[in-house]
Simulated assay, not measured.
Amino acid sequence: MDIDLKGKSALVTGSTGGIGYAVARELARLGAYVAVNGRTGERVEAAIAQLKGEVPEGEFIAGVGSVASAEGVAELLAGLPRVDILINNAGIFEPKPFFEIPDEDWQRFYDVNVMSGVRLSRAYVPGMVERGWGRVVFIASESGINIPLEMVHYGMTKTAQLAISRGLAETVGGSGVTVNSVLPGPTLTEGVAEFLKSMGGAGSDLEQVGREFIAENRPTSLIKRLARPEEVASMVAYLCTPAASATSGAALRVDGGVLRGIA
């Protein structure tokens, strides 16, 4: 199985922590030259230093810039005009009752979770098509199919990502470029850890609080626990390899079986 990414360049948005960080680490292990993205130089450099400690042979570059705005994307593109692999991972979430979500929150979630991937794909994918090889992965969520009542605005953005991913895959069909989505279930990232702490207290056992959260809020889960970032990263990294060349336009689940559909 060909999983060698030597000579390939990758950008992982929102990769100073969580799933994005785990994806950057896995791509580097497979030989890719990885641009680590975050809003500040300090956070990016700290993440790169940690990544180099975990993957000594890895090659990393700083990709500083907020992808939440056209200006931030332009700043990022100026320093990184070409990539072979684009991981649209940057995203935000916040539990809030529907009737308390103001217009500005809807717009902010759409800008960060959806438009970041649109703008970057629009910038990078034509070059991939011209070169005859490329990989684009949108980090969506099972929440794009199973809309969470506690954050409808978040679910909406994840549904939008699924639509964009499929549409883009069809747009570049036959070019050697593949476009896919990955649908993680609830995953124990730093943000989720803070959320769980707020539920169970600072001294709580996060594994146990996570299991209780799953039992109450995602009872259809088959693994009965939160996923780990590295478990999601393994699927994402595989989709970026030559071995996944026949997989495009797909929405692949790493949701622990939360979604009950068989397709």
Score class of each variant (00 low, 15 high):
2 D>T: 00
4 D>A: 04
5 L>S: 02
6 K>V: 11
8 K>V: 05
9 S>T: 14
10 A>E: 00
11 L>Q: 08
12 V>N: 07
14 G>C: 01
14 G>W: 02
15 S>K: 11
18 G>E: 06
21 Y>M: 03
31 G>N: 03
36 V>A: 01
38 G>D: 02
43 R>Q: 13
45 E>F: 06
49 A>C: 08
54 E>D: 09
55 V>P: 12
62 A>H: 10
75 E>L: 14
79 G>Q: 09
82 R>T: 08
83 V>Q: 12
87 I>H: 07
87 I>M: 07
89 N>M: 04
89 N>Y: 03
94 E>G: 07
94 E>A: 05
95 P>I: 08
95 P>H: 13
98 F>C: 03
98 F>A: 14
99 F>W: 14
102 P>A: 04
102 P>F: 11
102 P>E: 11
102 P>K: 05
103 D>I: 06
103 D>C: 09
105 D>R: 13
106 W>F: 04
109 F>N: 08
112 V>E: 07
117 G>K: 12
118 V>I: 13
120 L>P: 07
121 S>K: 09
122 R>L: 12
124 Y>P: 09
126 P>D: 03
127 G>R: 10
127 G>I: 05
129 V>E: 07
132 G>L: 05
135 R>I: 01
136 V>L: 10
137 V>F: 03
138 F>I: 02
138 F>E: 02
147 I>G: 10
149 L>P: 03
153 H>Y: 12
154 Y>G: 06
154 Y>M: 09
160 A>V: 15
160 A>W: 14
162 L>E: 15
164 I>L: 15
165 S>G: 15
167 G>D: 14
168 L>C: 14
170 E>T: 14
171 T>M: 15
171 T>I: 13
172 V>A: 10
173 G>S: 15
174 G>I: 13
176 G>M: 10
177 V>E: 06
183 L>M: 11
185 G>V: 01
188 L>F: 00
192 V>M: 11
200 G>H: 12
201 G>D: 11
207 E>D: 15
208 Q>T: 15
209 V>H: 01
210 G>Y: 08
211 R>C: 08
212 E>V: 03
212 E>W: 08
218 R>A: 09
220 T>Y: 11
222 L>G: 04
223 I>D: 01
224 K>W: 00
227 A>Y: 09
229 P>K: 00
230 E>T: 04
234 S>A: 13
235 M>N: 06
237 A>R: 07
238 Y>L: 01
241 T>P: 04
241 T>S: 05
243 A>T: 01
246 A>Q: 07
247 T>N: 11
247 T>S: 06
248 S>I: 10
255 D>S: 10
256 G>I: 13
257 G>I: 08
257 G>A: 12
261 G>P: 10
